[in-house]
Simulated assay, not measured.
Amino acid sequence: MLSPLEPSSGKLLISEPFLNDPNFRRSVVLIAEYSELGTLGFVLNHKSNLLLSDLLPDLEHADFPVYFGGPVATDTVHFIHRCYDKMNDGEEIAPGIYWGGNFETLSILLKNNSVSPEEVKFFVGYSGWGEDQLADEIRENTWIVSDQYHADVVFSDNEEEVWREVIINLGPKYAHLSNFPQNPNLN
């Protein structure tokens, strides 16, 4: 049996298969910041129809996909990366995965085609929980907390596969959930 994990920076929140909230349906959230005051994270597998160049016209050739990080502050852009060697900045939230950093440096790297979508992921908005809110949702079985993942999953652009892979990585107790249809009524 998988022992329940406490949420913390760098862990994943995996939505239960039948969560009806459209903001979090079959979502995988990377926790970027966790404290007793609240939690901030980014939905890794809800891609928007936008490219970074749509949001930031100065980066006209930055054809990086943009993801919906969550329903909070959707007028903001955030990023995670795994190219600290190029950026020399960012807060490490999991081994080799960094949140934020100097955007001017990143802009130069983008303009020079020195980074790829496999190294940097962009989000509009973020997911946020107030004090005790996430703990309550975990007790209600809305979320499964996991630290069983590879960095490649975080930077994957295959939305459905991200959710399936992290579910399977939880072990046999949860693996069967990965085959549940999104809408069981359509079976």
Rank of each mutant, 00 (worst) to 15 (best):
G130D: 14
E140P: 08
G90C: 01
G69M: 01
S116N: 02
E140G: 14
R164W: 02
S114R: 14
L30M: 03
V72E: 05
N185Q: 11
V153F: 08
F155V: 06
E104C: 10
P95M: 12
A135H: 10
S35R: 01
L177K: 05
N187E: 14
E159G: 08
D54F: 03
E160W: 12
E91N: 13
E137Y: 04
M87D: 03
H61M: 14
L55C: 03
V124A: 09
W99L: 08
T105W: 01
A94T: 06
F64G: 04
S9T: 09
E92T: 09
E131N: 13
N88G: 00
E119S: 06
T76Q: 12
V29G: 01
Y149P: 03
L13S: 01
G70D: 00
F122P: 02
F155P: 05
Y84R: 04
S114L: 12
L106C: 13
P22A: 12
N88P: 00
T142E: 07
I97G: 05
N23H: 07
I14Y: 04
N88W: 00
V153L: 14
P181E: 01
H61F: 13
V28D: 02
I97F: 05
L40N: 05
P95W: 12
I168E: 11
F42A: 07
H61G: 11
P184R: 07
F155W: 07
I108S: 14
P184Q: 10
Y84P: 01
D132C: 11
N169Y: 02
L56G: 03
H46M: 06
E165G: 05
T142H: 05
F18D: 14
Y126L: 15
V77S: 06
S178D: 13
S107R: 13
F123V: 06
L177F: 08
F68A: 14
D21A: 03
A175K: 04
I97C: 05
E6R: 12
K173D: 15
E131H: 14
S48V: 00
G38V: 06
V72K: 03
S156R: 08
